[in-house]
Design a protein around this nucleic acid. Structure first.
Length: 840
RNA sequence: GCCGGAGUGGCGGAAUUGGUAGACGCCCGGGACUUAAAAUCCUGUGGGAGUAAUCCCGUGCCGGUUCGACUCCGGUCUCCGGCACCA
C-alpha cells in the first residue's frame, strides 16, 4: 500500500508512457465543456537540443493547461516545430547532410526532451513547418496576399548580412549588425518580395486596445509602429518645383528658416545643372551612400550634424513668402515621411544643432521657454504661446495646430497627414532551407501566381546549399526546377528562386493546430470557429516586434478575406523572463583583491554582473537532460517555477534545485504518516482552504513561486501536526500541475485513483469555502504611535472596544500609561490596534 | 535623449486596496538519530547594544503626507530592458 522509495526515474518513465499510450491529453474539436486554448511559442529544433530557457514558459503554460482541465475546460495545448532556418542550413553545408535529415533528427531529440518533462501536449496535433503538407498552406496564404495586392516585388536598398549572405528584414537588424550572427549589415540594391504590412499599421495599432497583453508588449508594439500625426506642406522651390515636407509641428511654420532634403532625394539629381557647388554636393551624396547603417547609427549617437547647402536653388516659405536656403543632410532620412523637412531650429533639437553649426537663423515662434538661441524649446502642450506668427499669435501650440492645418487646406498648400515608422516587410531570403515562393515570372505576362491546385510547390533536391556571393539563392542553379511554363500563357517562364523568411511558418501556426491534418484548407471553418482566439499565449519579449507583429498582421488579413473569425489572434499575451547563468568572471565571487583586479582588467564591466546569458564559451550552460537525470523532471519543473517572479530574469542555481528535490522528498515521505479519515483534520482545515485559494489565484496570475511557497508551508504544517488521507488528497491535487508524475504515482499507489475512478489530472480542481479561510481567533498587532509593541488574540470580527481593551491590557502598553495618556485609538478590523499617546 | 521596469538580509525572493517588513527556499549555526558520515527529523538565523528583560537601527538616497509608508507625493542616484537623427 505504501510506496517505499521515491524512484523518480522509473516513476516518470511510467507515467510519460501511460499518458502517451492512453492519449490522456488528446483533445477534440467539440465538447460540452468551455474551450480553452493555451499556446506556447513552438521551438526552433536546433542541434544543441532543449535549453533551460525553454522549460520556463513551457512548464508555466503546462501548469495552466493542467489546472484548466481540472477546472472542467476542453483544453487545446499543442506543440510543434518551427524548423526552417539558417542554423540547420549552415550545419547542412558544413557536414554535407540534407537539411531535412538534420531537421528530422533534431525534432526527434526535442520530442524526446519535451516528453521527459511531462508536458501535457496533444501530440496528435504536432506540426512541423518544413512538412510540405504544412507549407502548402504557408504558400497558399502568400498567394492570397498577392491576390489582394499585399505582396509585390520591387528593387530597393535592402539590409544585406555579409556573413549569412542573405537579405534581412528591418526588424532583424539590431544596431547595424545582423540580429542572428552579429556580422555587419550593408545596404544593397536588390529585387525583393515585399509584404505591405504598412497597410495594416493602423489596424495593428487599434487592435492592441481590445486585447489583454502585458503593458510593456503593447508599448513596444506601439513604438515599433511609430504613428505620428502632423501635416504635409508644399514649399515652392525657385526652380518652380514643389517640395513636400512632413511635419508634426505645422504650428511652427513661421519659424522655418531653412529646408533639408535627404541626400537620396530625387531633386538633388534633377537640380544638378543649377547648382554652383555641384562637386561638393556630389561628394556629400557619395559619402552618405557609403556609410553603413552602423556608421549612421554611431553618428546619430553624438548628434554631430553634417550637410551641404545647395547653392543656386532656394525655397519659399508659403506662410510668409520668405526665401530660405535648402541643405542636404543625412539626418533627414529618405525612407521616412517625404524625405524632406522644413527646419525650425528654435523648436526642434536636431534642427537647432544643425543651425548652430551652419549659422542658420533661429526665430522664436513659440514663447514660454528659455532663450531659443541657447536651446530649442520643444514643448508641445499648452505651456507655449505662439509669437511672430501672424494669425496664430496668442494661441497655444495645441490650439494652433488645427488652425494652421485648416488654413493650409483652404489655401491648397497642405493637409493633415499621419505617418508610421513601420516599413513594409522584406519577404525574400536568398537561401535554400525555406518555403519556396510560389510565383513564376514570364517575359510576356509578368509575375504570375502558381495555381492553387499545384501547391505545395516542393523544395527541390539540390547538390549544394551554399549561398552564392552574387546574392542569388542556391535554388537559382537548379535550372530544371527554375525553368517552367507560364500559368497564364503557357510560354516559357522562370520560377522565383528566393525562399520565404523563417517568420512565415510561425505567422499562422496557431491556426493549424486547430485542424492539423486538413488537406482541403489551412483549417476547417468549424475548427476555426470552435477554437476562436488563442485564450492565452505566452512567449519571449524578443518576439514582440517580429513574430508577434507579423502573426497579428497575417491573422488580421485572413480575417479581412473571411478565412478566420477574429481579427486579433491572441486574446491574452504574457511574457517570461530569461534564465541566466552564473558569470564565472564576476568579481564578487573572488576572494583576493588581485583576482578581482584581474577580472576587471580582463573583462571590464562584464565582470561586474553576477549573472549573464548562458553560453558555451563561458561554460555556464545548464542542460535540462542532466538536471532530469540527477533530480527528475518534477524537481526540474518545480524549481523552474519556484526560481522567482515569472516575468523577470532569473539566475540558475544548482543549490536551489536541491531544495526543491528535498521538498518533493518530504511530500513523498508524508505518505507513510497518513491517518485514516477522508475529511480534513480540524487543525488543518483553515490552512487547506487558504492554500487552495492561494494556489488557485497564483496560478491564474502566474505567481508560481508563491503558489509553491504556499504548498511548502502546508507540508510543513503536516509534518508538525500530522495529517489524514483527506488532507493529503488535496495536497496531491494542488501539487499535480507542478509535479504531475509524483502526484499520479502517489494518487494511484495510495488508492485515491481507485476511489475517484481516474488519474489525478482528471479530477476536479479542489474547491475552497471562503468562510473557512478565516480562523475563529485572530492575532492583532498592537502598536503605540505606529510602532509594534506586541500582539493580542481576539475572536474574529471583534468590535473596536473589545480590541482596544485587549490592546490596553498588554503589559508593555500598561507600563507606558504610567507617564502617557491615550489621545486616540485606531482599529483595523482583524489586523491591528494603534494606540496614539502623548505625555501627561 | 525618449518610453517602460526595478533597487528589500550572506543569496533567490515574499508582503491584497497604506496596517505585525523579511513568507517560502538556499546557505550557515545548534541538537537528535548513527561507531562515523551522508540522508532525515527538530531548532536558530536582518543588523547593533545588553547576562537578561529590553532598547535602538533597518526596504538605494533626501524630503513630505499620515496615527501608521517597501507601498502614496516631490526631488535625486544607480541598474536592467526597449526605441532612437522618425521631422
Amino acid at each position: 500500500m505504501i510506496a517505499l522509495k521515491y524512484d523518480f526515474a522509473s516513476i516518470e518513465a511510467k507515467w510519460q508512457k501511460r499518458w502517451l499510450e492512453e492519449k490522456t491529453f488528446h483533445c477534440e474539436n467539440h465538447s460540452s465543456k468551455p474551450k480553452f486554448y493555451a499556446l506556447v511559442e513552438f521551438p526552433y529544433p536546433s542541434a544543441a537540443g532543449l535549453h533551460v530557457g525553454h522549460p520556463r514558459p513551457y512548464t508555466a503554460m503546462d501548469v495552466i493547461a493542467r489546472k484548466k482541465r481540472m477546472d472542467g475546460c476542453n483544453v487545446l495545448f499543442p506543440i510543434g516545430f518551427d524548423a526552417f532556418g539558417l542554423p540547420t542550413e549552415n550545419f547542412a553545408i558544413k557536414n554535407h547532410v540534407h537539411p531535412a535529415v538534420i531537421t528530422k533528427r533534431n525534432i526527434e531529440n526535442f520530442t524526446r526532451q519535451l516528453h521527459m518533462l511531462g508536458y501535457s501536449f496533444d501530440w496528435d496535433r504536432a506540426i512541423d513547418t518544413t512538412d510540405p503538407s504544412y507549407y502548402k498552406w504557408t504558400q497558399w496564404i502568400f498567394l492570397q496576399l498577392w491576390k489582394h495586392g499585399l505582396a509585390y516585388k520591387t528593387t530597393m536598398p535592402v539590409n544585406w548580412c555579409t556573413s549569412c549572405k542573405c537579405v534581412l528584414a528591418n526588424e532583424e537588424v539590431v544596431e547595424g549588425v545582423c540580429e542572428r550572427c552579429g556580422a555587419p549589415v550593408v545596404r544593397k540594391e536588390k529585387s525583393q518580395w515585399m509584404l505591405k504590412i504598412t497597410d495594416y499599421a493602423q489596424k495593428l495599432l487599434d487592435g492592441l486596445d481590445a486585447v489583454d497583453y502585458i503593458e510593456r508588449v503593447k508599448t513596444q508594439q506601439r513604438n515599433w509602429i511609430g504613428r505620428s500625426t502632423g501635416a504635409e506642406v508644399t514649399f515652392k522651390a525657385t526652380t518652380g518645383d514643389d517640395i513636400v515636407v512632413f511635419t508634426t509641428r505645422p504650428d511652427t511654420l513661421f519659424g522655418a528658416t531653412y529646408m533639408v532634403i535627404s541626400p537620396e532625394h530625387p531633386y538633388v539629381k534633377q537640380w544638378a545643372g543649377q547648382l554652383s557647388n555641384l562637386a561638393e554636393v556630389e561628394d556629400y551624396v557619395a559619402a552618405a551612400a557609403r556609410k553603413s547603417d552602423f556608421e549612421r547609427t554611431e553618428l546619430a549617437a553624438d548628434k554631430e550634424k553634417t550637410g551641404v547647402m545647395l547653392q543656386g536653388v532656394r525655397a519659399v516659405n508659403p506662410v510668409n513668402g520668405r526665401e530660405i536656403p535648402i541643405f542636404i543632410s543625412d539626418y533627414v532620412l529618405a525612407s521616412y515621411g517625404t524625405g524632406a523637412i522644413m527646419a525650425v531650429p528654435a523648436h526642434d533639437t536636431r534642427d537647432w544643432a544643425f543651425a548652430k553649426k551652419f549659422g542658420c537663423e533661429i526665430i522664436e515662434v513659440v514663447s514660454g521657454g528659455e532663450d531659443v538661441q541657447k536651446a530649442a524649446f520643444t514643448a508641445k502642450d499648452d505651456t507655449g504661446i505662439l509669437v511672430n506668427s501672424d494669425f496664430l499669435n496668442g494661441l497655444t501650440v495645441r490650439e494652433a495646430i488645427p488652425v494652421i492645418t485648416k488654413w493650409l487646406e483652404e489655401k491648397g498648400i497642405g493637409h493633415a497627414q499621419v505617418n508610421y515608422k513601420l516599413r513594409d516587410w522584406v519577404f525574400s531570403r536568398q537561401r535554400y532551407w525555406g518555403e519556396p515562393i510560389p510565383m513564376v515570372y514570364c517575359e510576356k505576362c509578368g509575375w504570375q501566381p502558381l495555381p492553387e491546385d499545384q501547391l505545395p510547390l516542393l523544395l527541390p533536391e539540390v547538390e549544394s546549399y551554399e549561398p552564392t556571393d552574387d546574392g542569388e539563392s542556391p535554388l537559382s542553379k537548379m535550372t530544371g526546377w527554375v525553368n517552367t511554363t507560364c500559368p497564364c500563357c503557357g510560354g516559357s517562364a522562370r520560377r522565383e528562386t528566393d525562399t520565404m523568411p523563417q517568420w512565415a511558418g510561425s505567422s499562422w501556426y496557431f491556426l493549424r493546430y486547430m485542424d492539423p491534418h486538413n488537406d482541403k484548407a489551412l483549417a476547417s471553418r468549424e475548427a476555426l470557429d470552435y477554437w476562436g482566439q488563442v485564450d492565452w499565449y505566452n512567449g519571449g519579449m524578443e518576439h514582440t516586434t517580429l513574430h508577434l507583429l507579423y502573426s497579428r498582421f497575417w491573422n488580421n488579413f485572413l480575417h479581412d478575406i473571411g478565412v478566420v473569425p477574429y481579427a486579433e489572434p491572441y486574446a491574452k499575451r504574457t511574457s517570461h523572463g530569461m534564465i541566466l547563468g552564473k558569470n564565472p568572471h564576476y568579481v564578487g565571487s573572488f576572494e583576493t583583491q588581485a583576482e578581482k583586479d584581474e577580472m576587471l582588467r580582463k573583462y571590464g564591466n562584464q565582470a561586474l554582473r553576477p549573472s549573464v546569458k548562458m553560453s558555451k564559451s563561458l561554460g555556464n550552460v545548464v542542460n535540462p537532460d542532466d538536471v532530469i537525470r540527477d533530480y527528475g523532471a518534477d524537481t526540474m519543473r518545480l524549481y523552474i517555477m519556484f526560481i522567482g517572479d515569472f516575468e523577470k530574469t532569473a539566475t540558475w542555481s544548482d543549490e536551489a534545485v536541491k531544495g526543491c528535490k528535498k521538498f518533493l522528498d518530504r511530500v513523498w515521505n508524508l505518505s507513510e504518516k497518513l491517518q485514516d479519515g477522508a475529511d480534513y483534520s480540524p487543525v488543518h482545515e483553515t490552512a487547506i482552504h487558504r492554500t487552495i485559494k492561494k494556489v488557485s489565484g497564483d496560478i491564474e496570475n502566474m505567481k508560481f513561486n508563491t503558489a509553491i511557497a504556499a504548498l511548502m508551508s502546508l507540508v510543513n504544517d503536516f509534518y508538525a501536526k500530522g495529517l489524514t488521507r483527506g488532507d493529503y488528497r488535496t495536497l496531491l491535487l494542488l501539487l499535480s500541475p507542478f509535479a504531475p508524475h509524483m502526484a499520479e504515482e502517489l494518487w494511484e499507489s495510495l488508492g485515491y485513483a481507485a476511489e475517484a475512478g481516474g488519474m489525478a489530472c482528471a479530477q476536479p480542481w479542489p474547491a475552497y469555502d471562503e468562510a473557512k479561510t478565516v480562523e475563529a481567533q485572530v492575532t492583532l498587532a498592537v502598536q503605540v504611535g505606529g510602532k509594534l509593541k506586541g500582539t493580542v488574540t481576539v475572536p474574529v470580527d471583534s468590535d473596536d472596544q473589545t480590541c482596544v481593551e485587549a490592546a490596553l491590557s498588554l503589559d508593555k502598553v500598561q507600563k507606558l500609561l504610567d507617564t502617557m495618556q491615550v489621545v486616540k485609538t485606531i482599529v483595523v478590523k482583524n489586523k491591528l490596534v494603534n494606540v496614539v499617546m502623548k505625555p501627561r
